[in-house]
Design a protein around this nucleic acid. Structure first.
Lengths: 132, 132
DNA sequence: CAAACAATTCAAATATTTTTGAAATATATC
DNA sequence: GATATATTTCAAAAATATTTGAATTGTTTG
């Protein structure tokens, strides 16, 4: 006589480890777990933010901006990057919402956002830093 | 008579915005800022961790493991990925320290680590989840 | 022990990201 | 107004990451 499990794994899955069987039982079955999880595309924004911080050069920029608001000229000196390369990475950080810029005549001034501070785990505010 | 600024920017930099001049003065000059910043390679590990979470599929795996420890068979069913693809992404998450696995005979069981929970901002512990 | 299973590994193909260098834009200075 | 400056944008090249599918490893089952 074949026992019917409400937590039976999806068709196609033959064997699962005994521990998994127990886990599924306690969670109400695989279907219950699957149904609770959001769809893949719901992670897109979060993934983009993580990606923005996934390059050492961009973390370097973030940490420089943690010390002070800076224009690309100075960031270029600090990071030793070419103009266009710096511009590329600044754009990625800005698109992710971690930095912003203001235009002052022919210069730009970049500043880290509150979200940016949080993201790199430096929420402690250094009050002297000018905010935009 | 030429004034000598201790906060004068590095050679090669001609003009900076007036606001930048004030910022540099308050921070002790560009050199002081640069000297305080760690070298580029010091961000490698942190960048690798962010990169591990920079793909929607990997966040999906993380969130599934937040609900329960799971074997690749079940993860495959949940994420609709091919064997080798899943294996590739599990490896990236494990290398970053966000998940671990134990071997039970022919099966593996993957579990999220405490660091993994923290990283995706779900520090609130759901006590029923079996930990390895 | 042969066939089935769970899962990984590997190499090639594909896709995405990053770098580079030239051109463009806009502002400032002589 | 011509030249210099600050910065971006763009397209091609280079570097990395991901996907795919076949081969491999080790374990279980008949």
């Amino acid at each position: 006589m074949e026992e019917i499990y409400t937590y039976r794994p999806a068709a196609g899955i033959k064997n699962i480890p005994p521990e998994m069987d127990a886990v599924l039982k306690s969670k109400g079955g695989l279907r219950t777990i699957t149904d609770r999880l959001p769809e893949l595309s719901s992670y897109d924004d979060e993934a983009e933010k993580f990606k923005a911080l996934s390059a050492p050069v961009r973390l370097q920029i973030m940490h420089a901006l943690l010390v002070a608001d800076l224009c690309p000229l100075l960031l270029k000196d600090i990071t030793k990057m070419s103009d266009s390369k710096l511009s590329y990475h600044l754009d990625i950080l800005e698109s992710a919402g971690f930095i912003v810029h203001t235009q002052r005549q022919k210069w730009r001034i970049y500043a880290i956002t509150l979200e940016g501070r949080k993201a790199i785990g430096h929420l402690r505010q250094t009050s002297e830093i000018p905010m935009i």
